[in-house]
Design a protein around this nucleic acid. Structure first.
Length: 119
RNA sequence: CCAGAUGGUCGGACGGCCGCUGCCAGCUUCGGUUGGGAGAGGAAAGUCCGGGCUCCAUGGAAACAGGGUGCCGGGUAACGCCCGGCGGGGGCGACCCUAGGGAAAGUGCCACAGAAAGCAAACCGCCUGCCUUGGCAGGUAAGGGUGAAAGGGUGCGGUAAGAGCGCACCGCGCAGCUGGUAACAGGUGCGGCACGGUAAACCCCACCCGGAGCAAGACCAAAUAGGGGCAGCUGUGCCGUUUCGGCGGUACAGGUGGGUUUCCAGCCUGCUGCCCGGGUCGGUCGCGUGAGACGUUCGGCAACGAACGUCCUAGAUGAAUGGCCGUCUACUGGGGUUUUCCCCACGGACAGAACCCGGCUUACAGGCCAUCUGGCAAU
RNA sequence: CGGAGUGUAGCCCAGCCUGGUAGAGCACUGCCUUCGGGAGGCAGGGGCCGGAAGUUCGAAUCUUCUCACUCCGA
């Protein structure tokens, strides 16, 4: 179906996306976005779950569910040349997958349009 | 049937669709693609021990310091682990718990209370004698009180009152006998209490230990900066080779940016090319055939060992097992019913390999199997 | 993944090695001083010593297990 999805693997990439300060918060995740400075060929995505979400089992499951949701949603809504970071939260591993995917779809459309009404 | 003890084992099952990471085979425009097959645990955890493996140190060995272990025998590559036995404690019992060497090698400590806390001593008492109230001198450690602990315990005798002062039993110590590989157990004789606790206090004795860890370590190696070395351009001769265009080596002559006033040498510095060394990002290896798993037989009470046969069984690196659906089956709650059965909802315990093994410890909804103990009922 | 360390009053820390009384500073409460406040002085309250077992007569201290947090190795 969609375009190829790259993966963010380096720590500096995650820090750069976080420094861009463009984010949308949902119940099951935090979405960050930033243009890719090197290439505009493809959209890239990375996943993060800190120790606050639970033990190793919960952190792995959180990233797995975000990975599946990102493959469904970002392959059609992800813009080429953009880097996205999905941060797992405490309820990511336990909430219903339908609402998780719906929230991500909503957040992707909202983050595409630049927001001016800060604060 | 109820209650309990010990050991073992499983820890959701089956199917469909879409995906993830290696492996094998085919195709390939080397980007991929198609097919097949594989893909978390009993604790993968905590990192508390023991090893393998790698690097560093080291002449072999021993010793000091430091650390660890500690009844006896066995198992094991090794262990602080496991098995069997002994001693002590608990339970009606099956069975469970037990850091369990040495306190007459030495040192330290035992607060408060109490007369006295460590080669014993004597506060109140008790008894005897002297003395006109009350004390003094002596005997004594049975009784009182303090304390965690007061220099054997109980009973009888004995005595002025008492005391192992004497006797019996128990405890303790010493000697020797029997059984046992040993720890130890059981008699016998003697002693007549002399010897408090603490070694997870210092310590003594016996045995063991070099240090760090796969982010160990080995290899390939971009860009930038930097280190070391060689050469630089032209012409001619000679030698080797030749596909007759050249290429390589060597000799001679001239020439080679800037600085050191000028020239040569030397030195410093710059440019260009090549090579060497170090090795950052990244990549490859280490990285899974092993003290391996399963089965049978034999030896052994057992831990375990031997022989034979079969099998190959995860290898990720921002880190692979997920998402959705259906049926069944546990748990929990509610209802009809209340022996059973039916319906609905919720929804799978602890938890995710990261170099690998052997253990220990800790977490864990629940299910199953085997053996055994106590009680009730029936025969 | 591997290796070290720390948990004690509301906060920051002593005490632990060598076991018997938990103690400073800031903060808090009351009083004095001042017209009032601050500063200062005096007095006072507040801690199951992260949790659980064990050794000991007795554990914050010694031993073992466990929980949480911090730091180091690219």
């Amino acid at each position: 179906m969609g375009r190829p999805l790259g993966r963010l693997k380096r720590r500096e990439d995650f820090l750069r996306v976080a420094a861009a300060r463009t984010k949308r918060v949902a119940h099951g995740f935090v979405l960050q976005a930033c243009p890719n400075p090197q290439s505009s060929e493809e959209a890239r995505v990375g996943f993060t779950a800190s120790r606050k979400v639970g033990g190793a089992v919960d952190r792995n499951k959180t990233k797995r569910r975000l990975r599946v949701a990102a493959r469904h949603v970002l392959s059609e809504l992800g813009k080429p040349g953009m880097d996205y970071v999905l941060i797992g939260r405490r309820d990511t591993a336990t909430m219903a997958f339908d609402t998780l995917e719906k929230d991500l779809r909503h957040a992707m459309t909202k983050i595409s349009e630049p927001r001016r009404n800060q604060k």
